[in-house]
Design a binder for these strands. Sequence first.
DNA 1: TAGTGGTCTAGACCACCGC
DNA 2: CGGTGGTCTAGACCACTAT
Lengths: 263, 263
Amino acid sequence: MSPVHRTEQRTAPGDRALDPLSFTLDRTSPVPLYYQFAQQLEAAIERGTLAPGNLLGNEVDLSARLGLSRPTVRQAIQSLVDKGLLVRRRGVGTQVVHSKVRRPLELSSLYDDLESAGQEPTTRVLRNERIPAPAEVAAALGIAEGAEVTVLERLRCTHGRPVAFLCNYLSASLLELPTQRLESTSLYRMMRSAGIVLHSARQSIGARSATAGEATLLEEKEGAALLTMVRTAYDVTGRPVEYGSHVYRASLYAFEFQLLVRP
Amino acid sequence: MSPVHRTEQRTAPGDRALDPLSFTLDRTSPVPLYYQFAQQLEAAIERGTLAPGNLLGNEVDLSARLGLSRPTVRQAIQSLVDKGLLVRRRGVGTQVVHSKVRRPLELSSLYDDLESAGQEPTTRVLRNERIPAPAEVAAALGIAEGAEVTVLERLRCTHGRPVAFLCNYLSASLLELPTQRLESTSLYRMMRSAGIVLHSARQSIGARSATAGEATLLEEKEGAALLTMVRTAYDVTGRPVEYGSHVYRASLYAFEFQLLVRP
DNA sequence: TAGTGGTCTAGACCACCGC
DNA sequence: CGGTGGTCTAGACCACTAT
């Protein structure tokens, strides 16, 4: 278990751990072959059948064994390299990465984050109306000042305790936002259901002291440290579709994520 | 300038904006062809020669015009899709994304961030010694408790004002860290120079109120909101190489970044 | 239906690594 | 030196989109 070992045991037993692995490819399936292979490879890594540090075996043999062409095998491997699960080195081979690289940063929904953490999130909609866009919002959404926008104010709780106060703006024409559905799912899920495909988002994460109003709402003391996030999300055409300003109780929430170093 | 337009003007003049563009490929260069093409494509987008919304023209024609095979052209295009500059849609084509997608989140160095923002960062090294690893540090770095580590405490300033207090731990055997060099460059640059190739990092960003000591050091009032970041960085073999705990003045600093939505 | 990107093949040569 | 990944080619067929 020494963490100092490097790349010994090139030919040690169990090195070509890929042999005992059985990969089943279904050529009649609509799922691309490279994707089928990538998923099975990822599953093998996930459950430890392919241990960290193990070499994958060279791509030529691999493709022969799988009955695939080398480019197809490479496409599968590359997708796992992009996820940070594998590392390729010329003249050496492809290895499983040691660390528990799991989630890279993604455009996350607080609701989804809490739900997947088993936190049973609930939402109280404090405000849901259509108003003329204030200047700041109009600028962020790239619309005319005074154009109709939907403003949402929500209080997100887990186990009955408030975690965050969320304020969001969307062009009113984009989407219907019934209060009832907002209380049982996430805004991003509703946008997705409405066919809005998100492409990117610009975020800024900061901190500040709670105002009296925020303190009351979030059950903190006035002046308590709060985490803040301001975000503009864009769809595939590059059009801004959502602008949000959120505050989180720093005592209950932090942003956690994994980064990959760009090569 | 209406931000509401979608994908009109399929056949409008100036649509095949790629025609007037001149791409020069050097087959004798060691730089891969797909990379040469990708760079010139990115430059054309950057300077607006390829305007947002423009279609690229189909890949078959494109490869013929460039004298490249289609997979090579696709590799170039794919790299820009991954960067968020282009969007591909089946049956439609490849378009330049509207928004000013620029920097995705990367494993950033505060020093480099400030420097590239023209903030003239300076560093005061408050502590630079070798100590037995405390339990928390040993756990993060995957070494034995009590093993020798280098501990760094630095104050980062811009324009003479303190911005952040940085505390970092590294295995002592990894790297020499002369105080003088630490005051004129970033820790990550020094690690890179020493041949340490970073692969990924796990970060947690939160907030809390300043202690009396932090307040004095950062020239804030006691209880002021501070941004906090805790980070463990890993090299290509998955070994933890650095553990850091940083606090930033929320009044002077925020984390800004662009995210791409995973497809 | 015509045009687009998505997938896949079966080769080839080169650059880098470790021995 | 042999083995590895990195790059590149010239085709092919399919799935999806728009008209």
